[in-house]
Design a protein around this nucleic acid. Structure first.
Lengths: 112, 112
DNA sequence: GTCGATACTTACCAATTGGTGGGCAACTGA
DNA sequence: TCAGTTGCCCACCAATTGGTAAGTATCGAC
């Protein structure tokens, strides 16, 4: 039975459980997938994201955006204007989790 | 653009964001998917699960199992024996999240 | 000069999550 | 009599996560 996978960079064996736990770390958080879902087919400004996710606090939104950028899932573009204008775009890497969202949308129905 | 879905039971409109948030609630937790992954093709006793998930504390394991049973994802069968014997089996409902695990396994690779 | 707009930051707090280490019940076999 | 087995509970604690409400910087418009 196949329970482990090769990591292509160095051949190190990474057990399935570790990969799953890492994936859970990456996608979890109360609002994270909502943000990615929002950005799946448009670039949005900070304020637009905030308005489109009612209930999220600024502190958390800023924090999530920062982490998503660090993870390489979002690209942040600041125009040097005043008042500030900042845009967030989903990267290719971020786009890999879109199918997860679609699947979760199906699966989630059963648990409402 | 399709951003909402009909809930089949009463026709109530449930926005996509709510469904996603619910799905996240259901699958998240440090160990939850590991447990489901373990049980994907065999029934296991409590002690076996514990041994197969190194690092999990008893308190958390018991708690997770209880919640998974409540969610209808796991079935618990107690034989009235001493010392106790308790088996956990993945239900059909629980089986719906197996594809999520498989997808996360693919996606998670990129974030190791 | 003060207001509004925008994208944050900060201090403080509350709730949730997870971990540690012990205990317990009930029977069996030595 | 007494340790071993097994599934689970409990009190307590620490870390993480999330929320509230306020403040900041900079500009143009009135």
């Amino acid at each position: 039975m196949m329970t482990e996978k090769q990591n292509q960079t160095n051949g190190e064996i990474v057990p399935t459980q570790l990969i799953i736990k890492r994936a859970v770390e990456v996608i979890c958080g109360k609002w994270r997938l909502s943000i990615i879902h929002l950005l799946r087919n448009e670039t949005l400004r900070y304020g637009e994201i905030k308005r489109l996710i009612p209930g999220i606090s600024e502190k958390v939104l800023v924090h999530e955006l920062k982490q998503l950028v660090e993870l390489g899932m979002l690209e942040k573009k600041s125009y040097g204007e005043i008042p500030p204008r900042v845009e967030y775009t989903l990267t290719e890497k971020g786009r890999t989790v879109v199918p997860v969202i679609d699947l979760l949308e199906e699966v989630g129905q059963a648990f409402l």
